[in-house]
Simulated assay, not measured.
Amino acid sequence: MMWRALSADWLKIRGKGLWFLVFLGPAGLLAMQGLNFGLRYDYLKNIHQADLWGGLLDNLSNFVPVALYLGGTLICSMMANVEHQTSSWKQLLALPVSRAAVFLAKLLLCLLLLAASCLLLSAGTVALGWMLGFQSQPVPYTDILRIGFLGYAAALPVILLQLWLSLAARNQTFPIACGITLSLLSLFSYSLSEWFPLNWPGLAWSSSKPWLFSISGIFLGLLVLLPGAWHFARKDVA
């Protein structure tokens, strides 16, 4: 049943701007770093001459958590708004598909869209490094994949919370405001404990044990998922 619901949701997002958002996040991050290195090329290349790719990734990593939080917020909100704006919840939930399947289908589609965005970020990082003339050093493909996907796993608690809020609220003002607030707080939370969840995407790159924070994000995400699915299954969202 979930796959039928997922197929229906896949068709619904056509022309809704979600794919544009998937491309916009990584394109914005890469354009910012392209401008950063373009304007200070000699200076940055001299600083990072021992590890040019590492310097690029370190500069990029400062903005990946915010992009994940904002991207997750907007994708979840736009996904939920497909049903809210057309008032189609009653018709959707009248179909012979369980509410749990509907919830999981929307969750899976949101996660797939964000995963596509992370993959585009990794591919674009390789392309940017080549454009900047880093071919003299080997491409650290593992680190390039890690910068997006480990942070993605660590950001799952916030992403799942945003999906819960977006599906539960017909007016998307509160979910979006909540997501923007959490995104901004993540910029100033490094002085707090490393076990503060907003820090986990950044620590999934910079920590000596990055996998610990990614696994913690997955575990906490599951804890957020359970009450979210339970609430959706019982709430009147028609």
Rank of each mutant, 00 (worst) to 15 (best):
A116E: 01
A233M: 14
L35R: 10
V126Q: 11
Y69K: 00
G71L: 10
S117T: 00
A100I: 02
A116D: 00
G17S: 09
F149M: 04
T142N: 09
F134V: 09
Q137T: 10
L74C: 06
K16I: 00
D143L: 15
R170S: 08
G133D: 09
L92C: 11
M2F: 12
Q33L: 15
N62D: 12
R99Q: 06
S98N: 05
A168S: 12
Q172H: 09
P96R: 08
S214T: 01
L70Q: 01
T125H: 12
D143F: 08
V158H: 03
W195D: 10
L220C: 08
C178E: 03
L21Y: 02
L56G: 07
G54F: 12
N81Q: 15
S98L: 04
L95F: 06
A229G: 05
L226S: 03
G133V: 11
M32V: 13
P138V: 07
M2D: 03
G34M: 10
W211I: 11
L18Q: 02
G151T: 00
S98P: 12
R40A: 14
H231G: 02
R4V: 06
S88D: 08
A123D: 05
Q172F: 08
S88E: 11
W195L: 08
G129N: 11
L109D: 00
F174D: 00
L57E: 07
A5M: 06
A8Y: 14
L223I: 06
S77L: 03
L29S: 01
S136Q: 14
L109W: 01
A238N: 14
D236A: 13
A101S: 14
V64S: 05
A8S: 12
L112Y: 01
G54D: 07
A5F: 07
G25I: 13
H84G: 09
I215E: 03
F20P: 00
W3E: 07
Y41R: 15
V237M: 15
F103P: 07
G72F: 06
C76F: 04
L44S: 09
L29N: 02
Q162H: 13
P210D: 01
M78T: 06
V64A: 05
S136H: 10
W211L: 15
G15W: 05
R234I: 03
E194V: 09
L68R: 03
K209L: 11
S122P: 14
K209G: 02
S88Q: 15
L167N: 03
I144L: 12
N199K: 10
I75H: 04
A5I: 02
S98E: 06
M78W: 12
S77H: 03
H84S: 09
P138Q: 13
W211K: 05
L95N: 10
N46H: 13
W10I: 05
L163M: 15
A115S: 03
M2V: 10
I147Q: 08
L150R: 05
L120H: 12
S87W: 10
A115N: 00
L185P: 00
M79G: 11
D236W: 11
G72Q: 06
T173N: 08
L108V: 05
L225M: 04
F196E: 02
L192F: 14
T173Y: 11
Y152D: 02
R4F: 05
D51E: 13
L119V: 05
L113V: 02
W205C: 08
F63V: 06
A169S: 12
Q33H: 15
T142K: 14
